[in-house]
Design a protein around this nucleic acid. Structure first.
Lengths: 343, 343
DNA sequence: CTTGGCACTCGGACCCAACGAGTGCCAACC
DNA sequence: GGTTGGCACTCGTTGGGTCCGAGTGCCAAG
């Protein structure tokens, strides 16, 4: 075995042992659990070299070594092969997710499933508006001068807005006007993403009588409002109690992590740039752009409906985690959710 | 001053000091901060009596005393007067909540506000379906054999269900049928709570032609489904990071508490029996029916729209908390939210 | 019933020594 | 050059021992 090669085998062994035991691993302990065919002294030399390269470190002089962020990074990139989930596991995932009755339920089940499969904090983004496609726009006459716009998307998500109108919408003339607007707006919007719709909506009022234009504009405006309201991008969490278990592994304690997890805007940003499964993104420790998460790693991926990505999901856990297993779980769950949403 | 009276004054002083300092309070330290007009020895006698009654305890022999659950209970019931919030505080609450644009935003702002006012974990229940009143039912024709029922409630909440139909709903005959069902269902349901609606719906299919009854029944069934689906009762949390601060105060650590907070069913149950503000309910330590929350106290109240209660809100924190201040904050927030929802 | 006094308890801080896991280095070996 | 056994060294952990002080409980006197 080449020396270089063995050094990496040592790193792999250190990562695996440390993840299992949560204790710094020394040269002797390592040899007991991994048959490397060399002596402890050789392993020590390799360790010194790995430390030189910044891949492992020692909490103090006479302790074993633990991987650094860079060490985990190398492990993830080159030393681990994904272990596919077992058939029963896959079956359990499918069965659990198939039980969902609506979109809320899908999201809810997904996040709980992820948390319990990985024993980490799970994060799932609601299907994002701006990437969704309009299925139907409904106008509901609520009172003399009020109407509600209901926006139905291909993900099953529903958004509503209440509008005030100048004119009285009661009676046949009102119904007739609403009906015309409804028809026109749907003609323009259905089948298009919300971002595409914006332009087409601007031309719409011209087709109406001057007295009616304000109402048409209001409907269009509220539709556009639904687009830019990124506030509506919601995330759901589960498994925060798993952080308590990991306590020791998180340097400054759970406080900063819990704080970061409450910043949904932050999470959305981190989930914003994801690829479709089987691609999963891994952010390790300080690679993470947010200080509160510097002691944690994130594993994220996207999910979609049809060919389009509509949201992200992933997990947050201590840097000391089972990367291959967790990556496989995240990937599998995202794949099944995508399949369900495509139906 | 009567002896009995003074004993309670001592208890009050112990609670206040312990809440402030998080350290067991001894007879000397207590006299330094509270002018009781008696000597340390007398205070010691009182403390012995209070301990006899189970109102305070000592972590170990030569330490000061800390209140027991029963001690806090007595404090809350008889020894504390609510301190109303300051005018600026009230103004800040109002201003912050008035900025909300829709129901989701109201709930979101409420829970964050509660968390930051009290420095505890805030819990807000979404306006509950079964207590809400139907404002409108809309049937939307989605495809040849599919339609969507949209249910709009007086709280602004919207529920939707997708239905499959036997007959082809396209074209004029389909539209006409949908229109008749829509009219009838609204006539029966609007203005009534969902629980009241159930009975009236059962009689509805008889008015229709045999071939149409299945569809009417399906619409009715999906409405009723929305009623019994208590799964849909959602709660929102904020401020879980505050638990990390309280760390020491929570005996077994934050783990069990985080776990309990993830059991939304549990939280819903605890929020289920609340009174309208200014009534606030306080559950202290082991008074709490769920073991995971035995080291915490909950302060809860209800909020409503018009005269009706539609949901609960409150906070969860360590038993060692500022009860008067927190109760005042919960009360004030619930009152403002109720006012906003009534508009 | 209150008060000052006093003996007593007990946890926390501090120090010290022994232990042992683990390292780094070196000289010898293949 | 890479590998190995040996060995001195480092340093955190553990356990014992002492000291200190906060705080108590009790008692006899006011």
């Amino acid at each position: 075995m080449m020396a270089e090669e063995r050094r990496l085998a040592v790193l792999r062994a250190i990562v695996q042992d440390f993840v299992r035991t949560n204790e710094p691993v020394g040269s002797r302990a390592l040899l007991e659990r991994h048959a490397l065919g060399v002596s402890a002294a050789t392993v020590r030399n390799d360790m010194a070299a790995l430390e030189e390269e910044g891949l492992i470190g020692a909490p103090h002089t006479s302790a074993g070594r633990i991987p650094t962020d860079a060490g985990y990074r190398l492990f993830v990139d080159r030393l681990s092969e994904v272990k596919p989930l077992s058939a029963p596991e896959r079956a359990a995932i499918r069965e659990f997710l198939n039980g969902a009755v609506d979109l809320d339920d899908v999201v809810d089940r997904t996040v709980r499933l992820l948390a319990s499969l990985t024993h980490q904090v799970a994060v799932v983004q609601y299907p994002s508006l701006s990437r969704s496609v309009v299925r139907h726009v409904e106008l509901v006459h609520l009172g003399a001068h009020r109407l509600m716009m209901v926006l139905i998307l291909n993900t099953g998500r529903v958004e509503q807005r209440v509008l005030e109108a100048e004119q009285d919408l009661g009676g046949d003339p009102g119904e007739e006007l609403l009906s015309r607007i409804r028809t026109d707006v749907n003609a323009v919007a259905v089948g298009h993403s919300l971002t595409e719709v914006t332009a087409s909506l601007d031309a719409l009022p011209d087709r109406y009588a001057p007295g009616e234009r304000d109402l048409v504009r209001a409907v269009g405006a509220s539709l556009e409002e639904a687009i830019i309201e990124e506030r509506e991008e919601r995330v759901v969490l589960a498994g925060t109690a798993n952080l308590a278990r990991a306590e020791g592994g998180l340097g400054p304690g759970v406080g900063p992590v819990l704080e970061a997890l409450e910043q949904h805007v932050v999470l959305l940003k981190l989930l914003g740039s994801v690829g479709a499964p089987p691609t999963v993104a891994v952010r390790i420790g300080r690679e993470n752009p947010y200080a509160g998460l510097h002691a944690t790693s994130m594993i994220t991926t996207g999910y979609g409906s049809g060919g389009d990505l509509v949201g992200g999901m992933g997990i947050v856990g201590p840097t000391r985690m089972d990367y291959p297993g967790t990556m496989a779980a995240v990937r599998a769950v995202a794949a099944y959710v995508s399949r369900i949403l495509s139906e």
